[in-house]
Nucleic acid binder design. Structure first.
Length: 276
DNA sequence: AATGAGGACAACCGCGGTGTT
DNA sequence: TAACACCGCGGTTGTCCTCAT
């Protein structure tokens, strides 16, 4: 059965979203919720196709999204799930709350694939590459596996350690975090969440877990499972926090405003007008 | 300081699945 | 049952940014 292309209509805009478009989409969805995407652009006053709106919302504007790099726990989970499911990015993403399939797919293609190759692992088959990685050449398949896959050093020593990187940029999502405005998208902090799903990977028998466990034990960010606030909960708390000033007035010392912060402001205005 | 290469990621494209008429 | 419409998924592309030269 033939299908009309979704976005070839004359006059529909393509390409990067502007802050104004983000604002329109977010304010519409916050006010009306998600209905049929085809109607969203018209109702929201956007010259975009519904598909584009859905993608923008799903991958960037959704309030429950985590921001920033995947934690090592999350990376391990992705690898394990990829081993089981292949390129079922949406299924993989469903095991990582706050992460999108697109984000995971991009991270896989740009980071994890390289790491696995450096470790001598075929990112497609998850088996040792042939020929085996350079010296010292293992004598037995088991040793090869252990050397290539069981060595966390191989996983991260040739790059800036994700954990240490997160040490620098991640703020724990506790009350202190709530009171601290996120200075930049990458530092929104939620990125290092140790979700129950991701932390459960530590019990997996997969060699990836064994490989990475030492480096991740005692989450480098100091965050304990369950400490992460649900965004809606955070939003309920914002008015009592210093963050509110940033959300309401906009970042004082940042020229660029993260669309996420824009969203927060819109959401607060729309849902708690009595506060202003 | 200029510039080219490579990396990272947002966004688009096309297809398949599913619900409705 | 067929035709259609919509949504979601996975692959790919385009653009911006960073870094090395």
């Amino acid at each position: 059965m033939g299908r009309q292309p979704c976005c070839d209509k004359v006059g529909l805009k393509k390409g990067p979203w502007t802050a104004e478009e983000d604002q329109k989409l977010v304010s519409f969805l916050v006010a009306n919720g998600q209905c049929c995407w085809r109607a969203v652009p018209k109702l929201a006053g956007l010259l975009r196709c519904g598909k584009s709106c859905r993608l923008r919302w799903t991958n960037y504007l959704r309030p429950d999204l985590k921001r920033g790099l995947l934690s090592e726990d999350e990376e391990r989970t992705v690898i394990e799930l990829h081993e089981q499911m292949g390129n079922r990015w949406s299924k993989i993403a469903s095991h990582l709350p706050g992460r999108t399939d697109n984000e995971i797919k991009n991270h896989w293609n740009t980071h994890i694939k390289k790491k696995l190759r450096k470790m001598g692992i075929d990112p497609v088959t998850h088996k040792p590459l042939q020929p085996a990685p350079p010296p010292p050449p293992p004598q037995h398949p088991e040793e090869e596996k252990a050397a290539g896959l069981g060595n966390i050093e191989a996983f991260c020593s040739d790059e800036v350690s994700m954990a240490r990187l997160l040490d620098d940029i991640v703020l724990p999502c506790d009350d202190e975090f709530i009171g601290t405005p996120p200075p930049a998208p990458a530092a929104c902090g939620i990125s290092a969440a140790s979700s129950p799903e991701s932390s459960s990977s530590s019990t997996s028998s997969s060699f990836y877990s064994a490989a990475a466990a030492p480096a991740s034990s005692g989450d480098s960010s100091g965050i304990v499972d369950g400490e992460w606030h649900d965004l809606s909960q955070m939003m309920m708390e914002w008015p009592e926090t210093m963050w509110l000033d940033d959300v309401v007035t906009g970042p004082a010392s940042w020229e660029f405003e993260d669309p996420f912060v824009t969203y927060q402001r819109i959401a607060l205005f729309d849902h708690q007008p009595e506060l202003f």
